[in-house]
Design a binder for these strands. Structure first.
Ligand SMILES: [Mn+2]
Ligand SMILES: [Mn+2]
Ligand SMILES: [Zn+2]
Ligand SMILES: [Zn+2]
Lengths: 143, 143
DNA sequence: TCTAAGATGATATTAATTTTCATTTTCAAT
DNA sequence: ATTGAAAATGAAAATTAATATCATCTTAGA
């Protein structure tokens, strides 16, 4: 049994956990995967409401957490800002360039840096699990 | 006029800003620079109270912010945890290895990574200002 | 169909941070 | 040294994002 779409992966995770599939979950997932990346709970709540005006904020919040649990989303915390979420599906790990002026996230990947990070950790007797590299500065459009 | 100690730097910054030097500022700075690094407001508050039992939490909080402003402290936010602060004085930039089990911070620096980060930013038309690299994993003592 | 368990949505709570405000303190001008 | 305007302090309140509560509704298996 191949599980192709995020929708299938989510429904499958929900079932396996003894939880229940609902229209709300479906609405939230659909909105999440068709919205801008790096979205806040509040922003996603607004989007979902256009399709399902009865949806509650708490439901969006809870289901974003479930999406993180099942590997379909990543939470991104920048300083004291509200948590942001990005869909994760058939997508490699990446780091972020974050514009101090407009807030734009640019996704970047550099395998040389990744390897050096692992080496650095190991040199310190440290077993790396995950990492977070954020470069803050001024983006092309803002300078 | 050379400004040597953090104490002098702080007093100087306060004066230049048209603010006023107080005993509380002195107590807070002294405690901050003689405590463990990566301390929370609450922890520093406890330390300062042993020397000055009348000190208020808000005063410690406000002065940690001033210390950040004048470059004598850095705020470190890890996920949803309380903010931590580290003294910054005659000390190079460094990154952190953070143990997922015991929470220990290990300070590391790798100039090769630093250079590659700048290169990566520039390749994307991005002018880097600062960055944050945190490697999460299991420290030597915890594995 | 029936029902136990889970989900939802409105609201309340939590916890860290920041603000308010009455009072005290600083410090430059006298 | 005295004065007084402006800033600092400390206690308490407000703010804010995140999370929990709970009455009601819905799901899904028997
Ligand atoms: Mn991203
Ligand atoms: Mn450090
Ligand atoms: Zn920008
Ligand atoms: Zn450890």
């Amino acid at each position: 049994m191949t599980m192709n779409t995020p929708r299938e992966i989510f429904a499958n995770y929900i079932s396996k956990q003894g939880l229940r599939n609902t229209q709300q979950r479906d609405d939230i997932l659909a909105a999440f995967f068709s919205s801008e990346k790096h979205i806040t709970v509040e922003e996603l709540f607004s989007v979902v409401k256009t399709k399902n005006p009865a949806i509650g904020y708490a439901t969006v919040h809870r289901n974003l957490n479930l999406l993180c649990e099942c590997g379909l989303a990543d939470e991104i915390k920048i300083g004291k800002q509200k948590a942001r979420y990005e869909p994760k599906f058939g997508q490699k790990h990446h780091d972020h360039l974050i514009c101090l002026r407009c807030g734009k996230f640019t996704e970047v990947i550099n395998s040389k840096i990744e390897k050096l990070q692992d080496k650095l950790a190991e040199e310190n007797g440290f077993m790396p699990v995950r990492h977070k590299l954020e470069i803050y500065g001024i983006c092309r459009e803002c300078r």
